[in-house]
Design a protein around this nucleic acid. Structure first.
Lengths: 132, 132
DNA sequence: AAGTCATATCGAGATATATCGATGTGTATG
DNA sequence: CATACACATCGATATATCTCGATATGACTT
């Protein structure tokens, strides 16, 4: 919630950056002003982890399959129509990213969505690209 | 909103899949039951487009920088601390994915967040990984 | 304890993505 | 109209990710 205030924003009233000043001087980026616009590293890393995990067709298919309830790894093999080692590799990444969680029951490992926030992510992402 | 009902869900009352039946028979995946659990291709493609666009450290940094208002391409060079062609390449991908939009003004091209849904995406993704 | 089944891990080759210099395009400006 | 600037595109190399057979692990069965 601690929003750093950009000092350059004072230079002009038109945009958040130094638009007016640039228009007058006719040059761009002669001063080091957007240095303050960098995000918190920990936050970026967390976001990156989630987005990388979901930026794959097969892993996305897994998450969709799990919307209706948990499935074991071998059922997900059927869903993805891919060899066992391939599926296991994707499931590992989803687990590492905290998107899915597991439950062991005898020989089987059941996978489920770990956090409903993941499902909201899917819906938002779908809405973004729906007109393009 | 049209949710396909999985026929296998009837087999047991414990989980959404055929858990009970498997427990009794001691085998897994002998029938083709999770075939019905595949997602709509168009939806998956839209989600994939958004997630791929955001699954990169530099592009994520761009989006964060644009939270406080629009910036021109050369300012984003300063933010990313990368050569012009590299930055341009990332901006293209963000634009293709519909995450950012542009406004031309003389020599400059200003970039802004195209849809507030993108910002919600960041917040959700950050929340997902914050404990892990 | 030997065999079978479900899954995880390893490692190497295939595929995709990122990087960035060179070059092209459009817009001011002298 | 030559020059400078902002930016886009191209193309080659570097880096990362995916794929999947081989192999390991751990649980149940006989």
């Amino acid at each position: 919630m601690s929003q750093e205030q950009n000092a350059a924003a004072q230079a002009g009233s038109e945009s958040a950056s130094g638009t007016l000043r640039r228009m007058e001087e006719g040059v761009c980026c002669d001063g080091p002003f957007p240095e303050t616009r960098r995000a918190d590293d920990a936050v970026v890393e967390a976001e990156l982890s989630a987005f990388k995990a979901l930026a794959n067709e097969k892993r996305l298919a897994v998450v969709h399959a799990l919307r209706e309830g948990e499935l074991c790894a071998c059922e997900l093999e059927t869903v993805l129509d891919a060899p066992q080692s391939t599926v296991a590799s994707h499931l590992r990444k989803l687990r590492d990213a905290g998107i899915v969680a597991t439950r062991k029951e005898g020989k089987w490992t059941y996978y489920r969505i770990a956090d409903t926030a993941s499902l909201q992510l899917l819906d938002l992402a779908a809405a973004l690209g729906e007109d393009r």
